[in-house]
Design a binder for these strands. Structure first.
Lengths: 108, 108
DNA sequence: TTGACATGCAACCAAAAGGTTGCATTAATT
DNA sequence: AATTAATGCAACCTTTTGGTTGCATGTCAA
C-alpha cells in the first residue's frame, strides 16, 4: 500500500469533507458531490482523482454517470500499522519529558 | 484540537520519518535529528516547527541545545474521532458497492 | 574574552498544490 | 438528428510548500 498517497490525500480538508459526505451517503455522483461545495466541478474532480489514486474512493461508471464509493480499508491499514505503534509510546513519551524537565541540573 | 494541522503535518514523509526517529530515541536535539538526513539543518528546523505547531512534538531548551520529544496524543485523538468512524463503515461500504456492481440493469 | 558549537532568522527559489476557465466527449432524451 | 446532461481534458494562474544559502544570536569551553 502507498501510505504516502493516503496521508497526502487526507491532508486536505476538502477531501476529508468529501469522504465524510460519502460516509453519510455512499455512491454519489460527481454532480451530487459538487452541490453545496464552494468550488467548481473540475476542482472536485481533481480531489476525487486524488482520493481514488489513494484507493480511498472506488468509482463505477454507468452510462454518463460516475458513482463514488468510500473505501475505508487504507485508513484501517494506516490505523493498524502506524498509529498502533504510537499507542505503546503514549505513556513512555510523557514520562521521558517529565523526567527531563525535573532533572533541571542535568548534563546540559 | 486542530485536526487539520495534524493531518498536514503527517502528510510529509520527512516529517513522519522524524517522528519515527523520535519514537526510536526520544529527546534528540536538532543536530542529532539532522544527522543522516539528506537535507540541511534549516530544512529540519522547519519540519520540526510544523510538527511542534501540530503539537506532535514538544521541545525543551536547555542551554544551547534544544531537545525534541514525541507527543502521540494528537494521533490518538484523530484515531479515536476520525478513524473509528470508518471502522463501522468497513462492512457497509463494500456491500453497497457489490450490490451496485451486480445490479447492472439498475436505474442508470 | 576569544573561539567554537548549537540554534535562530530572513531572503530567496523551484516545484507542487489547489483552483479557475474553456472546450471536447459521451450518453440520455425528445 | 438535435438538444441537454454528466463528465473528461488541458491550459493557465496564484499560493503554498519544501528546500536552499547567508548571516545573526546565544552559550559553553579554554
Amino acid at each position: 500500500m502507498e501510505a504516502d498517497a493516503v496521508f497526502k490525500a487526507l491532508a486536505d480538508a476538502s477531501r476529508r469533507d468529501l469522504l465524510d459526505r460519502l460516509f453519510d451517503r455512499n455512491g454519489q455522483t460527481l454532480g451530487e458531490l459538487t452541490k453545496g461545495l464552494a468550488m467548481s466541478r473540475q476542482a472536485v474532480t481533481k480531489h476525487l482523482a486524488i482520493l481514488e489514486a489513494a484507493n480511498l474512493v472506488i468509482t463505477l461508471r454507468r452510462g454518463r454517470k460516475k458513482f463514488h464509493y468510500l473505501n475505508p480499508v487504507p485508513i484501517q491499514l494506516i490505523a493498524a500499522r502506524w498509529i498502533g505503534k504510537y499507542d505503546e509510546a503514549r505513556a513512555a513519551a510523557l514520562v521521558d519529558l517529565k523526567r527531563e524537565l525535573e532533572n533541571d541540573d542535568g548534563q546540559g
